[in-house]
Design a protein around this nucleic acid. Structure first.
Length: 354
DNA sequence: ACCGTTACGGTTGAT
DNA sequence: TTATCAACCGTAACG
């Protein structure tokens, strides 16, 4: 809980240990780089460590996304219900089958690929623990899983392919699944929407992207399921918009909840956000602590730049252009901030100008 | 002076 | 419900 306020780094910038920088800042980092500003200058201007600037730019160059990776959660298990189901079938069909043979069959039948096929020991364990005794319980319904292509590329960066549950909600990976390229593809999904070159303009023009995303709504999105982080909603919202998908449905909404203080703001936002912004979900459960950046408004920001920045990004409106300077100006608005955030998020999306 | 890399302490979220 | 674990985070420091 306390985290709310964050810490100050050597450059005087505010950050929350363990949490991603707000998208607004991430965006500015990328924008600045595109404008030809050197990383070291960006670092100073935005008061973000150069290591972080370096990382964000590197990621952007590589993936075209400014978004942080998916935090938390568990890696999808290789022994998904579908896999177990197949193993069970193989075993039933040939009680004397060896684990290594099962492994080969899983590969041969494309139930798994070389990246996610269970180890022989895992198969043995499954046989022993799950299949040995249960003649066949249906408790696993593989159903949800992808039938043929369970493969799930676990995309390190933006999404996890969840074995089943999330999927249910969306087709999510399903489609993606096929993807041979594990890491990238998945997340790239959306990003792909971005201009290949990753030009800033696009970035700036986020809205386009966003909109697209939105447009794609679920479809494309499926691929892009990022998990967003809370505050993310703010900016991310924009990006992710589409995303709500991810399962995120958790309610997207709530995210905003995060704003401890200005509950008021929420409504609007939330309502709005719903689908999109929210996508990310998140916090829902833990709302409590929430404060972190998320809402910049949240307090965390208090005094901090985030909002200002974000706002700038998000909506040029305020007059806050994006000037490094502003950024750090201490702006005390809490509520406002919060509220703004909310709005911003929205605006972010729409903001047309830079 | 710049920047890529990484140890560290931290948060998150699925299991 | 709580604990565990593995993912990611940004900073700070090293080279």
């Amino acid at each position: 809980m306390d985290q709310t306020y964050g810490e100050v780094n050597q450059l005087g910038g505010v950050f929350v240990n363990g949490r991603p920088l707000p998208n607004a800042i991430r965006l500015r980092i990328v924008e600045s780089a595109q404008l030809g500003i050197r990383p070291c200058d960006i670092s100073r201007q935005l008061r973000v460590s150069h290591g972080c600037v370096s990382k964000i730019l590197a990621r952007y160059n590589e993936t075209g996304s400014i978004l942080p990776g998916a935090i938390g959660g568990s890696k999808p298990r290789v022994t998904t219900p579908t896999v177990v189901k197949y193993i069970r079938e193989y075993k039933q069909g040939d009680p004397g089958i060896f684990a290594w043979e099962i492994r080969d069959r899983l590969l041969a039948d494309a139930v798994c690929d070389k990246y996610n096929v269970p180890s022989v020991s895992s198969i043995s364990r499954i046989l022993r623990n799950k299949i040995g005794n249960l003649s066949h319980s249906g408790h696993y319904e593989a159903s949800k899983q992808l039938p043929s292509q369970p493969t799930m590329p676990y995309n390190p960066i933006y999404q996890y392919s969840y074995p089943n549950h999330m999927s249910s909600a969306t087709g999510k990976m399903g489609s993606v699944t096929g993807v041979p390229v594990p890491g990238v593809t998945g997340h790239m999904g959306i990003h792909r929407t971005w201009p290949s070159a990753h030009s800033v303009s696009n970035i700036l023009g986020l809205r386009s992207i966003v909109e697209q995303a939105a447009a794609y709504g679920g479809s494309e999105v499926s691929a892009y399921q990022t998990k967003m982080e809370d505050w993310s909603n703010v900016n991310r919202a924009a990006f992710s918009s589409a995303q709500s998908v991810n399962g995120i449905e958790k309610q997207a909404i709530d995210p905003d909840l995060k704003y401890p203080q200005p509950p008021s703001a929420l409504p609007a936002a939330s309502s709005f956000v719903p689908a999109c912004a929210v996508g990310p979900y998140p916090s829902s459960n833990k709302v409590p602590g929430y404060g972190v950046y998320s809402g910049p408004g949240a307090g965390y920001v208090t005094g901090h730049p985030w909002q200002s920045q974000s706002s700038s990004l998000s909506h040029s409106g305020p007059g806050i252009g994006m000037h490094g300077g502003d950024i750090h100006a201490p702006m005390p608005f809490k509520h406002l901030a919060a509220r703004e955030e909310a709005q911003q998020s929205l605006h972010t999306v729409r903001r047309s100008s830079l």
